[in-house]
């Protein structure tokens, strides 16, 4: 009896291990597949470059770019520019995102506020950053203020729109529960509305963070003496194309990194969600 019971158990364990190994090998294959095309392009690019088929001013070889990357990192110049850029993005995001969140909650809460504020905000939302930037520079000069405000303008709207949407899509039936349990107005917000709107709020955060980096480049290229945007612009005027590439790569990396951070936050805060996550075996 016992033996009979033990056998399937062992088999089960081995089966799980086999499945795990299979999944791992599939993952590895996926990574290799995904990397194949970029690697091929890099190799062809490098070979064509060293053979002299490419204009080194327009398209420096990957190895040249890597060399530049290493030297900029070693000199500390890259870290300095990146630090300043990150600081600006953070301040702008905190200011714009914080206001966007507050406005979204306020407007989401009250139909009266919605009618008062939303039309104006929606009008401002459609203004392109590039059209506003000269005005900001006129008003606030080339200093930090204009840059941070420009980023704040960009990050305000994704959070505002999504918070508003999130609050308006809270299940009305849960409000009755809040009433029956005699929730205070404060508890209605903190225990019901904000948690229920959290998926939308986090989506807003993610979009805002993305916008913060995008606007940052615009702001730094318009006039600045530091930051990654300046580094790119400065290098361009001296035709140091390799440095331009380094700047672009840094933007890509940092953008991806911050996005992953928000995604991690999402996964932690939205553990309760029962939605399709994709089963990963396909």
């Amino acid at each position: 009896m016992e033996k009979a019971a033990a056998t399937p158990l062992v088999k089960g364990k081995a089966g799980t291990r086999r499945r795990l190994n299979m999944r791992r090998s599939i993952q590895l294959k996926n990574i290799l597949l995904a990397a194949a095309l970029p690697i091929a392009i890099l190799v062809i690019w490098e070979v064509a470059g060293t053979m002299g088929k490419l204009n080194p001013i327009l398209l420096p070889t990957p190895s040249k770019i890597l060399e530049e990357f290493v030297s900029l990192t070693a000199s500390g110049e890259l870290a300095r520019h990146l630090g300043i850029s990150a600081w600006r993005a953070l301040l702008g995001f905190l200011l714009g995102g914080g206001l966007g969140l507050a406005a979204g909650i306020w407007v989401g809460f009250s139909y009266k506020t919605e009618r008062l504020l939303d039309p104006t905000l929606q009008m401002l939302r459609t203004l392109p950053h590039l059209a506003i930037a000269p005005l900001f520079i006129l008003w606030f000069g080339f200093g930090e203020m204009s840059k941070i405000l420009l980023i704040a303008k960009g990050t305000f709207f994704p959070l505002y729109v999504n918070t508003f949407l999130g609050i308006r899509s809270v299940d009305g039936k849960l409000f009755d529960v809040g009433r029956v349990l005699q929730f205070s107005k404060w508890h209605m917000i903190t225990k019901l509305i904000v948690p229920a709107a959290m998926p939308n709020i986090l989506l807003g955060v993610r979009l805002s963070v993305g916008v913060a980096w995008l606007v940052l480049v615009v702001a730094e290229m318009m006039g600045s003496s530091s930051g990654i945007g300046f580094l790119i612009n400065d290098a361009r005027s001296f035709s140091l194309t390799a440095v331009v590439f380094v700047g672009i790569i840094v933007f890509a990396l940092v953008g991806k990194l911050t996005d992953s951070l928000v995604k991690l936050l999402e996964r932690r805060l939205l553990r309760w969600q029962d939605s399709y996550k994709g089963d990963g075996t396909l």
């Binding site: 039936k173 849960l174 009755d176 529960v177 029956v180 349990l181 005699q182 948690p195 229920a196 959290m198």
Partner: peptide, 20 residues
């Protein structure tokens, strides 16, 4: 006078807070 905890109410659906 309005809803209160003196009157416990069970709805047809459980209406739990999914995030708790």
């Amino acid at each position: 006078e309005g809803p209160s905890i003196e009157k416990g109410f069970i709805f047809q659906e459980p209406r739990l807070f999914p995030w708790l």
